[in-house]
Design a protein around this nucleic acid. Structure first.
Lengths: 161, 161
DNA sequence: GATGCACCTGCGAATCTTTGCAGGAGCATC
DNA sequence: GATGCTCCTGCAAAGATTCGCAGGTGCATC
């Protein structure tokens, strides 16, 4: 423990709540709890997992799964969370830390998600904006493909098969 | 009508069927029909739409919706089709023309999909491969964000709200 | 701190997508 | 062209996600 603020890297809850209000949305008890659960889960979390976590933290929370989905969608609109669609089964959500933008490498075979930082995408985003008018969300972009392990396995299978 | 081959730009059905067999998969009547329906639908099509199209082309086709989903997933694994997850409602699938790679700009607000060609992504893909070993699928990548219309609307709302 | 509007929530139902299982059918082999 | 091993398919059910509605509540206003 140093003299630094304990959670300097993470924006204050209050700032986030202000962002929600600023977008014309209301800050309800449910949203605060989902917010905490989402941030407490660190990396990626599915809606189901967030739902379970809220219930565990407060058995009397009485938050429904629909509310979790709706809230996550609202947060995604305000760009507080990013949705990762993977393609296999259930989507997962991630807290969007504006200080630490990164991209996701989604393996189409085994479903694992790796993170990379691709600073060159910032420039690419600029070019898309200029060329098309589209406002791309480059932070937390998901890129599909095959992880090292799975692409090696495929090559092996192609050779022997 | 010129003297050129009628469908020069599109790879022969036979080539595609060979690709399926080469991957160790079987070519069934259902898969051929789904293949035709998918290619006939040109742009993006949902599973439901492909299902309807197969039924319309051949009322006795007797193909179930599960089979359409499973087949599309198989085709995606062989990289014959690309899946676009949009996020709102139902996913859509697109025939992957290797001669005409392009990227998709998915508006998170209104759900429209625009196409762009971003040749610089090829180089970026190389870099990802070198740096991480991950084999990215850059062709037909989906990039989320806001279309011109929706981002303008949001700015307007933010000012007046 | 009382009031009212519009947004939120929970519930159940609808929709989209995946999965398990038993029978059917490609295709490699003989 | 008969045989057999697997992979495929259809069906039904489960799982994931969205939607409609009636009632509850944040918060701007007075």
């Amino acid at each position: 423990m140093s003299e630094r603020a304990p959670s300097a890297a993470v924006p204050h809850e209050i700032e986030v709540e202000r962002a929600i209000r600023a977008s014309g949305r209301r800050l309800t008890a449910q949203r605060s709890k989902i917010l905490s659960a989402l941030r407490a889960s660190g990396g990626h979390a599915t809606a189901e997992r967030i739902y379970a976590r809220v219930g565990a933290a407060d058995p009397h929370a009485g938050i429904s799964l629909s509310t979790v989905y709706r809230t996550l969608e609202q947060f995604a609109e305000v760009r507080l969370v990013a949705r990762l669609d993977g393609g296999s089964g259930s989507a997962s959500y991630e807290w969007r830390d504006p200080e630490a933008p990164h991209q996701h490498l989604l393996c189409g075979d085994c479903g694992t998600v790796a993170e990379v930082e691709l600073p060159e995408l910032v420039e690419l985003g600029e070019r898309i904006r200029e060329r098309t008018g589209f406002e791309p969300d480059i932070h937390h972009l998901g890129i599909g493909g095959l992880c090292t392990r799975c692409s090696a396995r495929r090559r092996r299978e192609a050779r022997s098969g």
